[in-house]
């Protein structure tokens, strides 16, 4: 009799546990609605142009000289905007270009995305750089116009085959008495929109 009572009690408590325990109102299908929207800031290109290092040897003082354009051109590998991930999952990329100039001459900086074969793709971006105030002064800071440069999703699609960037500093005729430094600093903000 005692045995039956014990089992009856066990069954009763077990039944309470089973019926009282539940997992309510969960919806795992919400996972489909998860969208990751992080914003990553990363350095982009940087460069420094020091007049003194570019005066051809033996140039007399107060003499005009020019620098061959190829010396001021560069091509660097950059396939981030051309990757499948970028095309599928980037809302936009914002490029902030900051140029600090001490040299009392105005410059132009331009850059262009290229395909692996070196073919230009998308638009040519130009940044006019204001003249600096000369050696020993605070640099004059110029930004791109517009600032930042926005590569929206449509533009990123255009740049799908971009693998490189060509940069160039367009320098007018310089004087061997000029001194100073031009510094390019830049960053890219990647606005991710990643759906699980």
């Amino acid at each position: 009799m005692k045995t039956k009572k014990a089992y009856a009690l066990l069954l009763f408590i077990g039944a309470i546990l089973i019926t009282a325990s539940c997992v309510k109102e969960l919806d795992f299908e919400q996972l489909d609605e998860v969208v990751l929207t992080p914003v990553f800031e990363a350095d982009f290109i940087y460069s420094e142009f020091d007049v003194e290092n570019n005066i051809p040897e033996g140039t007399p003082p107060n003499t005009e000289f020019t620098i061959p354009p190829e010396v001021l051109r560069d091509t660097i590998n950059y396939d981030l905007v051309g990757s499948d991930f970028a095309i599928d999952n980037l809302d936009r990329v914002e490029l902030t270009m900051e140029v600090r100039n001490i040299i009392p001459i105005a410059f132009t900086i331009q850059f262009q995305f290229l395909t692996q074969a070196g073919q230009p793709i998308g638009q040519l971006y130009r940044i006019p750089v204001q003249a600096g105030l000369g050696e020993g002064t605070e640099p004059v800071i110029s930004f791109s116009d517009p600032n930042p440069i926005v590569l929206d999703n449509a533009t990123l699609n255009q740049l799908a085959s971009a693998q490189k960037i060509a940069t160039e500093i367009i320098v007018p005729a310089l004087n061997s008495d000029l001194r100073g430094v031009l510094q390019i600093r830049s960053k890219a903000s990647y606005y991710v929109n990643y759906q699980l």
Binding site: F44, I45, D74, I76, I165, T167, S186
Partner: peptide
């Protein structure tokens, strides 16, 4: 340390 992509101007070698 990563400071971005340097454009050394005189160096045509890509940076990886």
């Amino acid at each position: 340390v990563f400071e971005g992509l340097e454009t050394p101007i005189t160096d045509n070698n890509g940076q990886d």
